[in-house]
Amino acid sequence: MIKNIFKILFLLAFFIFTVSAREKKETALPVFEQPLLITSAGQGAEVYLASVLAKRAGLNSSLSKIAAPKDMKNIKTLVLVLGASLKGLGSAGLDKAKEKERINLLVAEAQKKNIPILCLHLGGEARRGKLSDEFITFFLPFAKMAIVVKSGNKDRLLSRICEERNIPWKEVEKAADALKPFKEAFK
């Protein structure tokens, strides 16, 4: 009888330990604050997807495709939507160098003001390639967290960068599935 009680107590303790460990792992994910500024890193059109996700998540957000440090006043999270588009760059009057310079200034301002950066890669496989990969490898390392669509991470480029730098990351099947982790990332 006592032996059985010990067995039950042991199992209970094990259960409590695993649940609390899991919770600890989940709470280890960074919690971002609102309002958030959404901008593109590469001028891919997925910046609009991110804006719709923020709206659906009920987050207080603003969208600026060509955001500058002055736009970060009162901002508590910077969302970088990774992915390059030559048409998008041309339309914004930018080239690769100018876009990188713009994002560098934003990242520097975020670091100065201690504003965390959340990176999203929502374009999947279509938003990969030489140009997009440059923006990914350049700016993903600055993220406090990343959410990526699975088809864009087939070669594990995004997850490898995150794992090497201990950046928590979530992989989702489709862009719409990013809503849940995006919403949960905010207070």
Binding site: S51, V52, K87, G90, S91, G124
Partner: peptide, 25 residues
């Protein structure tokens, strides 16, 4: 907004589309 909503819905029914903004130049 319409294009973004639609893209997400299309992905849900198995159609992959890419989103492209009309260049203003």
């Amino acid at each position: 907004e319409l294009a973004s909503y639609s893209l997400m819905e299309l992905q849900q029914i198995g159609f992959e589309f890419r989103l492209e903004l009309s260049p203003n130049n």
